[in-house]
Amino acid sequence: MRSDFPHAGTEVAATAEQAQELGARLGAALEAGDVVILDGPLGAGKTTFTQGIARGMGVKGRVTSPTFVIAREHRSQVGGPALVHVDAYRLLDQSTDPLGELDALDLDTELDQAVVVAEWGGGLVEQIAQSYLFVTINREAEDDTRVFSWNMVH
């Protein structure tokens, strides 16, 4: 990840658009081999944030939750890395070998040549990356505000 995005921080997003804008700033700083883990309860905004990442990376395709397909690959429109968007919850929930399951998806892109964004990725990412950006999303119930906190883990 390029240094123009802080390796640790906290930001509040009062709207989905603000969450996507934060994601776009992160996406613009991501490089091939980067791994981002998104953690937060159902409805916290993980996919919304990933839509912003995709915009910042300049990748093709509509970004939707990968819940039923486990992973989606979005190719770059600007010569950058592909985005591999993973629902690790399903991998961790259904498999004793989640890394093998990820590899068995037969993605066209080598993971070290792409950016991997994994929703519910704790427990999986440690197997595919020595360092990663861990993003926690907390949703405030009363007004739909989301608090994003992130930290680079080495």
Rank of each mutant, 00 (worst) to 15 (best):
E140S: 09
A44C: 03
G100M: 06
R146I: 02
R25L: 13
A44P: 02
V147D: 00
L105N: 03
V147P: 00
A16N: 02
A71M: 05
V153M: 02
L91T: 01
Q130T: 14
A141L: 14
E126Y: 06
P41K: 08
Q113K: 15
D39K: 11
V115T: 02
R72N: 05
V115G: 05
G27W: 02
A118S: 09
S3D: 14
Q20V: 12
S3C: 08
E17G: 01
G45S: 07
L133M: 09
Q127D: 00
A24W: 13
E110Y: 14
I137N: 07
Q20L: 11
D93R: 08
A141N: 14
T136P: 01
L26P: 04
M1L: 15
A13M: 12
V125W: 02
H74C: 11
T109F: 13
H85P: 04
L91K: 01
E11Q: 15
A28R: 15
A82W: 10
A24M: 13
M57H: 11
E21M: 11
T15H: 08
Q77G: 12
G40K: 09
V153G: 00
G58Y: 12
E142R: 08
V86K: 01
D106F: 03
F5K: 14
D106L: 06
V84P: 02
D103T: 12
G79N: 12
L105D: 03
Q20F: 05
R139W: 00
G52L: 06
T64Y: 00
A32T: 06
D93W: 04
L91R: 01
D97R: 03
A118F: 04
V116I: 11
D103C: 07
H74G: 10
Q18S: 14
V36H: 14
P41C: 05
S149F: 03
H7W: 11
V84E: 08
A16H: 00
M57E: 10
L133E: 04
D4V: 11
V153T: 03
T47Q: 06
A44R: 01
L105T: 02
E126G: 12
A8F: 06
G40R: 08
E110Q: 13
G123Y: 03
V36E: 14
L22Y: 03
T47A: 09
E31K: 12
A32D: 09
L30I: 10
A28W: 10
A104I: 03
A14F: 07
R75S: 03
D106N: 12
L105M: 04
V135G: 11
H7Y: 11
F5G: 13
T96A: 15
G123S: 04
L124G: 03
P81C: 09
L83W: 12
D112Y: 14
V78E: 12
H74S: 10
L22K: 01
F5V: 07
V135S: 11
G56P: 01
V36T: 14
H85F: 04
G45Q: 09
R2T: 12
F5P: 13
D93A: 05
E17N: 00
D97G: 02
T109D: 10
T136E: 15
T67L: 13
F49A: 06
G23R: 06
L42T: 10
E31D: 08
L26W: 08
L105C: 05
K46T: 07
V12C: 07
V117G: 05
